[in-house]
Design a protein around this nucleic acid. Structure first.
Lengths: 112, 112
DNA sequence: CTCATGGTAAGGGCTGGATCGTACCTCCCT
DNA sequence: AGGGAGGTACGATCCAGCCCTTACCATGAG
């Protein structure tokens, strides 16, 4: 698992960037799952059971990460994703509430 | 100026729709202007001084209207746009605050 | 009436970005 | 050591959506 991952300072993230990141069914779905997750859930990419190939997943998770929405940490074998809740609430107060209010959490496999 | 314009009930607007509408520099800019506008400003499309052709303007304003973000009313010669402030605040509380917090209002011609 | 202004409708060009397939890497397990 | 699982990188394809041009329609002013 090569080099360190780029995580932007939340202050440097623009609203436009976040809107672009959320303007995609897959990515909105990912964030919905994370925001509904009771514990500060670290989840593998594949646990979301998204109907796309592996490389497409990598693509989406990178965009979410570069938009400051998620953190990705290497946990030995796999790479876990985690919502940057506090950061987002500070930089974009009310944003997560909007996502939370919209519908319920899509199906996933919380085991991973 | 043909037929009546379609304005969706705010309850039927989805978050995805709004995110899609705001995920465009032109449209985000339009909403920024409107949200900064002190009076409940009715403004003509051209008053925004956007660097695109007329038909492109029509395109963007339609998308904003169909996303429930603006209201468009015929005022004789021209067609004025207005932010649906109360509706948006009810359906997506906090959304306009996010736009408001992001930067200042772009240049326009408030006269129109 | 005539014309300028503000706007819409339809059609086409172009590009960004979502997707996939393949190849490759790394860690864990046996 | 060897294999499988989870991820990344790169290249190619494809399509939605932005933008423009052209043609057209109202309205209001002169």
């Amino acid at each position: 698992m090569p080099g360190e991952l780029f995580h932007p300072e939340i202050e440097n993230v623009t609203l436009a960037q976040v809107l672009a990141a959320l303007d995609d069914p897959m990515r909105l779905r990912i964030v919905k799952v994370l925001v509904h997750d009771p514990d500060t859930g670290e989840r593998t990419c594949t646990s979301f059971r998204l109907p796309v190939g592996k490389s497409t997943l990598t693509h989406h998770f990178r965009i979410l990460r570069e938009a400051g929405l998620i953190r990705q940490v290497d946990r030995g074998n796999s790479r876990k994703a985690q919502l940057r809740r506090e950061d987002i609430d500070r930089r974009f107060p009310g944003l997560l509430a909007l996502v939370l209010a919209e519908g319920t959490a899509p199906e996933t496999d919380p085991a991973d």
